[in-house]
């Protein structure tokens, strides 16, 4: 035990470990905040679809040899988020089919491009790290940390300012629109912020595991809490704690960062489900 703590203390003296912790916590915070309305609006699948789009865009950026991949990936993902949201609202187009098409399409194209134009000798290693995050969180530069911090702060601020509107639109879009709330703007904002968070989260957990970061904290919180505010606060807390725990455990135990965080999220979900069942049973 003391060995693990010493190891941790040693690692925490390295700036890249501190960067990873800061960025991980920020990303976890944003994704969980947004996760609550996304899950409630039955939009969980959009997060999943977008993460695959981000993978495709990342592959394209790598093939093009861009040193700064973030702007391209961010742009493509935001555009796709807006498109998906529109098709989701249009009853004549099968929203879920459109998402599935776009997401597996980008996954296939991404993998294809990475194989056709390999940027390094180890293609499967590249693919694996893009999909599952592996160590990219530990290789962030100072600039990337600042960018992540700024984007996360922006997302949290947008969520706070629009909190009441997001609640109104999520709970009852027709009512909100009849009262003059600009529901379209609110949905658009949510789509854009979702895209931003997904691109950020790719650094942390890789594109396949992002949805877990969005969905699990919200679902865990909903097992136990009964109001929108408490669910939101609890989801944020759960997500931050799990991200911290996941990163620290992965450092000590040498496990992959992304999957360790997701495993922590799953454990909390199981715990909260149990707590919810006991509480629900006791009070009925």
């Amino acid at each position: 035990m003391t060995g693990a703590i010493e190891k941790l203390a040693l690692y925490l003296t390295y700036p890249f470990v501190r960067y990873a912790l800061i960025v991980g916590v920020l990303i976890a915070l944003c994704s969980s905040l947004l996760g609550v309305p996304l899950v409630l609006k039955r939009f969980s699948y959009i997060g999943d679809g977008l993460s695959h789009v981000a993978f495709g865009a990342m592959a394209v950026a790598a093939v093009l040899g861009l040193t700064d991949r973030m702007p391209l990936v961010l742009g493509v993902t935001i555009v796709c988020a807006v498109i998906l949201l529109r098709t989701g609202q249009n009853a004549r187009v099968q929203g879920d089919a459109a998402v599935a098409m776009l997401s597996v399409g980008s996954l296939a194209v991404g993998y294809l491009l990475m194989n056709l134009y390999p940027t390094s000798g180890n293609v499967s290693g590249d693919v694996c790290s893009t999909l599952f995050g592996s160590t990219s969180i530990l290789t962030l530069t100072r600039g990337e940390v600042w960018l992540c911090a700024a984007l996360s702060a922006g997302s949290v601020a947008a969520f706070a300012v629009f909190y009441n509107k997001i609640f109104a639109v999520t709970f009852d879009e027709s009512f909100a629109r009849s009262a003059g709330t600009n529901a379209e703007l609110c949905n658009l904002l949510m789509a854009v912020v979702t895209a931003v968070i997904i691109v950020l989260a790719m650094n942390l957990v890789g594109s396949l595991l992002i949805s877990a970061l969005v969905i699990f904290p919200a679902l865990s919180a909903m097992r136990v809490f009964r109001s929108f505010r408490s669910v939101t606060v609890c989801a944020a807390a759960v997500s931050v704690v799990c991200a911290l725990a996941g990163i620290l455990i992965s450092i000590v135990a040498g496990t992959p960062v992304g999957s360790t965080i997701v495993a922590a999220d799953m454990a909390v979900f199981a715990l909260f489900s149990l707590a919810g069942a006991i509480k629900g049973g006791a009070f009925q």
Partner: peptide
């Protein structure tokens, strides 16, 4: 939907 009665009634004041 996890929402308290208070949150829902208050959201009527949005407009």
């Amino acid at each position: 939907f996890p929402a308290s009665v208070w949150e829902i009634v208050l959201s009527g004041c949005q407009g």
